Measured scan of single mutants.
Amino acid sequence: AEEIWQQSVIGDYLARFKNDRVKALKAMEMTWNNMEKKEKLMWIKKAAED
């Protein structure tokens, strides 16, 4: 689920960090860890469908 979420937001994060992939990935990891369980559930369901 986290991978699907990352694939959907990586472009936004890379743009925000001027294509600094290391910073973008760290920010994504922090965002994922801070997400509410119900927000993650949507992505977990999406992962299950694929």
Rank of each mutant, 00 (worst) to 15 (best):
G11I: 14
W43M: 02
Y13E: 01
N34F: 07
A48T: 07
L25H: 05
L14T: 03
M28I: 03
W43I: 02
A1R: 02
Q6R: 13
D50K: 13
K18H: 15
D50E: 14
S8E: 06
V22Y: 11
L14N: 02
M42C: 13
R16M: 14
Y13G: 00
I4P: 01
A47M: 09
I44G: 06
Y13C: 02
D12V: 12
G11E: 10
K26Q: 11
K45P: 04
K18V: 06
G11K: 13
A47W: 12
W32T: 00
I10H: 04
I10W: 11
S8Q: 09
D20N: 08
I10D: 01
E39V: 04
L41K: 08
K23S: 10
Y13Q: 01
A47Q: 05
Q7D: 11
E29F: 05
D20K: 01
Q6I: 14
Q7W: 11
M28C: 02
E49H: 08
A15L: 12
E3A: 11
T31H: 14
W5G: 00
K18G: 10
L14I: 05
Q6D: 02
M42I: 15
G11W: 08
N34A: 13
N34H: 09
E36I: 04
E49F: 07
Q7T: 08
D20L: 02
Q6A: 13
N19Q: 11
V9W: 02
V22S: 09
M35A: 02
G11Q: 14
N34V: 07
K37T: 15
M28G: 00
Q6G: 10
E36P: 15
A15Q: 12
A48L: 12
E39A: 04
D12N: 08
D12G: 07
N19F: 11
N19P: 03
E2M: 14
T31D: 12
Q7K: 13
G11M: 15
V9M: 06
F17L: 03
E3H: 11
M30S: 07
I44P: 02
K38T: 15
E39M: 06
V9A: 04
G11H: 15
K18S: 14
K18N: 15
D12W: 06
K37Q: 14
E39S: 03
L41I: 09
K26T: 06
K23M: 12
V9S: 03
K26A: 11
E2T: 05
E49M: 14
I44K: 05
K37W: 15
K46C: 07
I4V: 08
M28H: 00
W5D: 00
M35H: 01
K26G: 12
N33V: 06
A24C: 04
S8D: 04
I10Q: 05
M42Q: 15
G11A: 15
V9G: 01
V22P: 05
M28N: 00
K38D: 13
M30I: 15
L14H: 02
K38A: 13
F17A: 06
R21C: 15
W43E: 02
W43L: 03
S8M: 09
W32N: 00
E36G: 13
V9Y: 04
Y13M: 06
K45M: 14
V9K: 04
A47P: 06
N33P: 02
V22D: 12
M30C: 09
K40L: 05
I10Y: 11
E49W: 09
L25S: 05
E2C: 12
E3D: 09
Y13L: 03
A48E: 13
V9C: 05
I44H: 06
Q6F: 08
A1P: 14
V9Q: 03
N19Y: 12
E49P: 05
N34I: 06
M35E: 00
M30R: 07
M30Q: 12
D50M: 15
R16K: 10
T31C: 08
K18D: 14
L25G: 07
K40D: 01
K38P: 09
K26I: 10
A48Y: 11
W5E: 00
R21Q: 09
E2W: 10
D20H: 04
E29I: 09
K38H: 11
E3Y: 09
G11N: 11
E3G: 06
M42F: 15
A27I: 05
E2D: 05
E49A: 10
M35P: 00
A47S: 07
